[in-house]
Amino acid sequence: MRGRPIGALNEARIRKKEENVNIVACVKQVPDTEAQIKVKADGSGIEEGGIKWVMNPYDEYGVEEALRLKEKKGGEVTVVSLGPARVIETIRTALAMGADKGIHIQDAAFDNADAYTTALALAAAIKPLNADIIFCGQRAIDGDQGQVGAILADMLDIPHVAVVTKLEYTDGAIKATRPIEGAQILIEAKLPCLITAQKGLNEPRYASLPGIMKAKKKPVDVKNAASLGVTPSVNMKVVKFTPPPARAAGKIIGGDDPALKAKELARLLREEAKVI
């Protein structure tokens, strides 16, 4: 755990608010898991037409945990997302679940942003909020990199606990459970800190209809690179997307003698499939 001296001002702020937690939840919009993914002819990306966009499921656990914390202790949840215009739908989904306000970082300069640049933009948007706790998903189901949370925590110079399945909040600190192979570890951290959420942390709620309607009127602040004072720097670039090879047809081994058939199967598994 990375420590950081908590300034007197910061401590005073926490004490003053006591049971009023300032919470941020970062969300990413991703294609639905069932969506048909077609790679663009030039391999530069995926065809976006006809795709149903949803909130990254791991981010949803983060939003839910943020809302539960707010409901227990009081405070405010700000949801932050980076992406094109369509991302507003995902922000509204989080607002419908119960988040209070949103920040939408929208700038063509961030198209194809890598994890570092994304974290840079998020950090710039989140820093002025003086968050006590920040939730991210442990990774996004599209790029599968799992880096943004960690980089963001580093940029904000706060501790972070990754892949959390259980979270307890006590005054000014958290206890987070993180599964490791065959066991789990319990980590304590002082606030402010960043948590990346894993499946099992909670069951995200379904937005109520009054929630959906109210979400339409909740404030969403739109920011761009200039207003955040960020210069996008692309350090990492996806060179090419390649779809997985089409599944080959199955093979049926003919013949009447089971012993011969077994022999042939063993040969194919060894020589063709190369699995034994």
């Binding site: 639905d32 069932e34 149903k52 069951e203 379904y206 937005a207 109520s208 209809l209 009054p210 929630g211």
Partner: peptide, 22 residues
């Protein structure tokens, strides 16, 4: 229960999401 309170069997939540997304 569903619209006002959003409190209903979790299996239905999955069903509704499936209907929403796909």
């Amino acid at each position: 229960k569903v619209l006002t309170e959003a409190d209903f069997p979790p299996e239905l939540q999955l069903t509704f999401r499936n209907m929403e997304n796909n």
